[in-house]
Design a protein around this nucleic acid. Sequence first.
DNA 1: AGTAAATTACGCACCTTTTTGTAACCACGA
DNA 2: TCGTGGTTACAAAAAGGTGCGTAATTTACT
Lengths: 117, 117
Amino acid sequence: MKDLVSRCPIEEVMQVISGRWPSLLIYYLKQGTKRFSDLRRDNPTISHKMLTLELRKLEDAGIVERSEFEGYPLRVEYDLTPAGLKLVPLLDALGSWWDATAAGRSRGSTLPVEVTE
Amino acid sequence: MKDLVSRCPIEEVMQVISGRWPSLLIYYLKQGTKRFSDLRRDNPTISHKMLTLELRKLEDAGIVERSEFEGYPLRVEYDLTPAGLKLVPLLDALGSWWDATAAGRSRGSTLPVEVTE
DNA sequence: AGTAAATTACGCACCTTTTTGTAACCACGA
DNA sequence: TCGTGGTTACAAAAAGGTGCGTAATTTACT
């Protein structure tokens, strides 16, 4: 994903939050400060390479803050920035929208979805 | 992107609206009914393969409605569904968020970013 | 009148590009 | 030697592009 210069802010956000990991990482970081290894434990199927890449991307986007502490085994902490925190409800809104529109979709899911409308 | 069964609605939405095209297609469809070739004109850099794949995905997600008309050269129309329309303001909100947090980011943009720290 | 070509919205096969995974390596100190 | 938080190189997988084929009918040319 080369940094194609897009005229549209929506395109730009999507470049950052698109994909499998960003929303998950934001979700876990919302719970509070996390270390690199915490995030790997939270999400065991991400490779360490992906985790570093995605964290870097979120950091560049101003969503995540990285704090490095000197020491024995290097310690690095990750947090959501204030901007990142503001993003959370927007993602939640998407999730709610998805649930709300679930009726229209064809899913073999076992969960009976009750819709009044 | 195999249909990994995710427990989280946000993950599921992201699977649908992630990537370069969905937000753009939604943007253009918001302007009203569009035909396949209209969408290609709106967005000249998408290939016909991608356009069909993405439209299919949005259709499956209940965001886009496809209407096929019998005839000479086959005619197909695409529209946002009511659910799709409800998605629009959520994407707009993401765009606004991006613009609002623009100050924190490091861009080679010509706009002078003033940082106090 | 007869033939050729264009049109629309794709599907399919092949090939290239991009993304992601894997494994090895780094420094440091317990 | 292990654990920390990485980087790098190489390999595998996934995504995406290109071009051809298709239907049925109109239009264009001769």
